[in-house]
Design a protein around this nucleic acid. Structure first.
Length: 167
DNA sequence: AACAGGATGCAA
DNA sequence: TGCATCCTGTTT
């Protein structure tokens, strides 16, 4: 059962928490989401949307349930899902995936995740609610979730907005 | 522990 | 035009 718009139309930290254990489908690839991070807008210095709308960050202000793909350090793609009502900048970064399709490995890190799935900038702005091959469905019933500060950033490292599924 | 690789956006 | 950045693989 595909997650509906209301699931993403909530506070990004709540969505990031609830996405743990859900199943991501991307073409032939399927996997359980094991690690996420929440990013907000003006109140979050670590977010691309911190300084307002730019060509890159505009999607974060848009409709919840859409994909946000950006290039980091010039070579890796990172996959996010837009959350909160239109006009409220926020997104959830997908950092970890337990593959259900070969090679059944655990993808650790947003760059590796996108590289394996074949996600590129052409997958930016896709509506996961209306796409037939790129979406999120129910997965594990009640996974145990660990909450920690976000990693890989230098600002706002105090906010506990990283969510990891317990093994 | 340091760094290369190199798109993007901001300050200058 | 310069510099920092939501990363990763390779080399000290």
């Amino acid at each position: 059962m595909k997650l509906n718009r209301d699931f993403f139309n909530r506070n990004c930290a709540v969505v990031a928490h609830d996405l743990i254990g859900k199943k991501l489908v991307f073409g032939e690839h399927e996997g359980i989401i094991t690690e996420t991070e929440a990013y907000r807008g003006a109140d979050d210095p670590a977010s691309h949307a911190h300084r307002g709308i730019t060509a890159r960050s505009a999607i974060m202000f848009g409709q919840p349930g859409k994909s946000y793909v950006y290039i980091i350090y010039g070579m890796y793609y990172c996959l996010n899902i837009v959350t909160e009502p239109e006009g409220e900048a926020s997104a959830v970064l997908l950092r970890g995936l337990q593959l259900l399709t070969p090679p059944l490995t655990h993808l650790n890190g947003p760059g590796k995740l996108c590289r394996h799935l074949g996600i590129t900038k052409q997958h930016n702005g896709i509506d996961l609610l209306s796409d037939s091959s790129f979406y999120v469905t129910e997965g594990i019933e009640s996974p145990e979730v660990h909450i920690t500060p976000r990693i890989g950033i230098k600002k706002a490292i105090d906010k506990p907005w990283r969510f990891v599924m317990a093994l």
